[in-house]
Design a protein around this nucleic acid. Structure first.
Length: 564
RNA sequence: CGGGGCGUGGCGCAGCCCGGUAGCGCGCCUGCUUUGGGAGCAGGAUGUCGGAGGUUCAAAUCCUCUCGCCCCGACCA
């Protein structure tokens, strides 16, 4: 491919509204353009990357017996009504009516339509298991699209669905995906973790997420290097370090106007891990008091799993429920439902006295709030002990690049996706669903591979394998050699971009760095006088001078080696 | 949805407070020179200053409304 004929609009400066590195570079290097919030145009270079990622995905999906299908993006409301999601999902779903006034929506996922297909066309256990997948557009009216291509309103997803006759079958399909996904991300050349995740609104019994470490991510994972425990902090368990408990006697202490953990610790000269943080929230069943240690953070989602939807109580609600102003509430002396973090079981603490202007010292779970329900509701922090092996956990910021769910019969039951078993009994198909965001793989690859000059692509998903740069296109010998390399390497099946533009060397080199093509052959007059050309690695910057006639063989060896 | 910020040639920005008829850098076009890390000189094109209304002799600038985009948070199948 000739650079001069390809549409690669590079920019010297990043757009002012881009924040994430991947966003800035994708725009600067001419991979994408944004047309509206969360809506992107993919340019030729962007498409090349996406197609490579998609090809890898297809190969690995096919390898586990997956069969490609395509579901419509425009869906009838009916199937969504049958699963209850027409009402359960709010503004995030694009809805519209057709000319006949029928309710329609733009699919944000395809459990409904896939299950509809299974319901219509799978009848016997003999037809199971099945794995169906597609690379299809999803539309979600995101509350806040952000970070370039990482969170958009329209995006392509590889989604697959497994159909089995029982849980054992589902386990096998799940395991197949678990391994296939690892291969996909490894082949794409990005770093990732497989972590336990919340099943969320997808329902089901088990879920894992694939997470690519990057500061541009929106999730945090807890990792144990010692035993391999890894989980999204939405559900990660951890044992916070135990403080050295002083030998406190139970007593009231006056803490006038000292309300926050910070104020109280400073006033009484104690560390926050000796305090109990009492947070009153309003659930649908009334007020609930959440208790965590002073140095810990309450995890809203963990609490939601226990008490359902809730919100922080207003000041007057605190007063109404507990009879004291916020800042002095504590676990004692009332009958409000209490959920306490298990780390509070041991030791004696300082807590609000439920009396304005006072805290109490020497509060213990055993004596003072044994009526609490104990459940892990704190957010795992770096340095907390792993619940499995006791070693310290690490917390890492990550981009979610894929997830896998065991759905069970959540969708097959309402949509009547049943089959007849060996005995002729009708049973619901047991399902799993599995997603990958190819654009997020591309963004993660950039987030993980870049320097101040631009992108650094892994070979497997780079837009081209190799960039051939004749420094001066008017120098006939340089051009002849460049053309020769271009032709020879393309014939061998490599993807070569020939920078045949009549630009100054500086311009070409800057663009080369920006595009991040892994390998570069530079043909310049000075080196040609000694019969040499240069081979440069984008990642390391290492330059090797080789004989004109050796370059093709050498670069082929490098490319083949790196691909293996 | 709550909080904050920003909309001025293709891109990045200044001008706005204190109203007087729009400017800088890059890019683009032409010519000459230059040619291994975003060249130099000369000439040139490109703006309903996001939109609507208002105040005023006069609005990019002041006022009101509105639309869009970004960031933080909430939410996220």
């Amino acid at each position: 491919m000739r650079y001069s004929r390809m549409f690669i609009p590079t920019l010297k400066e990043a757009p002012s509204d881009a924040e994430a590195v991947s966003h800035k570079l994708m725009v600067r290097a001419g991979f994408v353009r944004q047309i509206a919030a969360g809506l992107y145009i993919y340019l030729p270079l962007g498409i090349r990357v996406m197609e490579k990622i998609n090809r890898i995905i297809r190969e690995e999906m096919n390898a586990i017996g997956g069969q490609e299908v395509t579901m419509p993006v425009l869906n009838p409301a009916e199937v969504w009504q049958q699963t209850g999601r027409w009402d359960a999902i709010g503004d995030e779903m694009f809805r519209l009516k057709d000319r006949g006034g029928r309710d329609m929506c733009l699919a944000m996922t395809h459990e409904e339509t896939m299950t509809w297909l299974a319901a219509h066309d799978i009848r016997s256990y003999r037809e199971l298991p099945q794995i169906w997948y597609q690379l299809q557009t999803k539309l979600r009216d995101e509350a806040r699209p952000k970070s370039g291509v990482l969170r958009t309103r329209e995006f392509t997803m590889k989604d697959s669905y497994s159909f089995d006759k029982d849980n054992e079958g589902l386990d096998r399909s799940y395991e197949l995906h678990l391994e296939a996904y690892k291969k996909i991300y490894s082949r794409c050349g990005i770093k990732f973790h497989v972590v336990q995740s919340d099943t969320g609104m997808m329902g089901g019994s088990m879920a894992h997420e694939y997470m690519a470490p990057s500061p541009a991510g929106e999730d945090d994972v807890a990792l144990c290097d010692a035993c391999g425990y890894s989980a999204n902090t939405e559900l990660a368990l951890s044992n916070p370090k135990k403080p050295a408990f002083p030998d406190w006697q139970f007593e009231e202490v006056a803490t006038p106007e000292k309300r926050t953990i910070d104020e109280v610790t400073r006033f009484l000269k104690v560390t926050p891990d000796l305090l109990i943080k009492s947070i009153l929230v309003m659930s649908e069943q009334g007020p609930v008091l959440a208790l965590v240690r002073g140095d810990q953070t309450l995890h809203e989602k963990k609490l939601s799993k226990l008490i359902g939807p809730h919100r922080p109580a207003q000041k007057d609600e605190v007063k109404a429920a507990l009879g004291v102003p916020a800042g002095f509430i504590g676990p004692m002396g009332h009958t409000v439902r209490k959920i306490a973090d298990p780390c509070l079981k041991d030791g004696s603490y300082l807590a609000g006295a439920n009396k304005e202007g006072f805290h109490v010292k020497g509060v213990t779970a055993e004596k003072h709030f044994n009526d609490a329900e104990f459940s892990d509701i704190h957010t795992a922090q770096a340095g907390d002990a792993c619940v499995h092996c006791g070693q310290p956990l690490r917390i890492e910021r990550v981009i979610e690049i894929g997830n896998i769910f065991k759905l069970g019969t959540k969708y097959s039951a309402p949509l009547k996706a049943n089959y007849l078993d060996e005995q002729g009994n009708e049973k619901p198909i047991v399902m799993g669903s599995y997603g990958i965001g190819p654009a997020r793989i591309a963004a993660a690859a950039i987030e993980q591979g870049n320097d101040e000059n631009g992108m650094i692509w892994p070979l497997a998903i780079a837009p081209f394998h190799l960039l051939v740069v004749p420094v001066n296109v008017k120098h006939q010998e340089s051009m002849d050699i460049a053309e020769e390399y271009h032709t020879a390497l393309e014939e061998k099946g490599f993807e070569v971009l020939l920078d045949d533009r009549d630009e100054r060397a500086g311009v070409k080199f800057k663009d080369a760095d920006l595009l991040g093509i892994p390998w570069r052959i530079i043909i310049g007059e000075k080196n040609l006088k000694d019969g040499l050309v240069e081979i440069k690695a984008r990642r390391t910057g290492a330059v090797e001078k080789v004989k004109v006639g050796d370059a093709v063989d050498l670069i082929m060896k490098k490319l083949v080696m790196e691909n293996a």
